[in-house]
Amino acid sequence: MPAPVIELSDVSRTYDEGPPALQDASLVIQPGEAVAILGPSGSGKSTMLNLIAGLDRPDTGTVTVDGTRVDQLNEAELTRLRRTKIGMIFQFFNLLDDLTVVDNIALPAQLAGMGRREAQSRALELLGNLDIKRHAKAYPGRLSGGQRQRVAVARALMNRPPLLLADEPTGALDHASGKDVGRLLNELNADGQTIVVVTHDEALAESCTHRTVRLLDGRISADTTTAARR
């Protein structure tokens, strides 16, 4: 059995004086899996994703991504980890609105040390794969929500990360665009990309993942595999 891409062990996180956002959560995700993390607002979904991505730190427990203890890294080390091992898609895209689409996508590769020309070439290739190459020179503000999310996906895939994390990727999109993004994630997973999707959207979870982890009040309440998609 290959080493897991993600391993959470007894992870807890509490913000200020509130109740725990995540409590004693343990989870293992293998390479090539597509996992949906579902739950109502405040159940701890985004907290779990942020802990995996190293955007936040656990109070207790360990988080390991592709063999690296994320919870023990400093900010600079976390940044380097994100550059190489994690691609992230956010609900509100988080594109830099002062860079063109192609520059937004090329940025992570350039930061990882790739030359500008090579990075641009790879970015254009990804834009072609995602069918938005014609918008390469546009600024994100001129694109629709669905197009922007495709740009965000391209940026997340730029460094060929072993892990793709998506936080409510369809939350800011209309129904058609949401379905489109779901299809895209499904295709990526079919090509072997490990994907973790945090969402409210049961339909999205059903369409692009084969495993569902349900959270309730910061605890994992269910972890089911959809055999049909297998």
Binding site: L55, E75, A76, T79, R80, R82, R83, M88, F90, N94, L95, L96, L107, P108, L111, A112, R155
Partner: peptide
């Protein structure tokens, strides 16, 4: 917020 995005895509705090 832009700083947050920069960090998310791979900029170190020093950068």
């Amino acid at each position: 917020r832009r700083i947050g995005i920069l960090k998310a895509v791979g900029f170190t705090p020093g950068q």
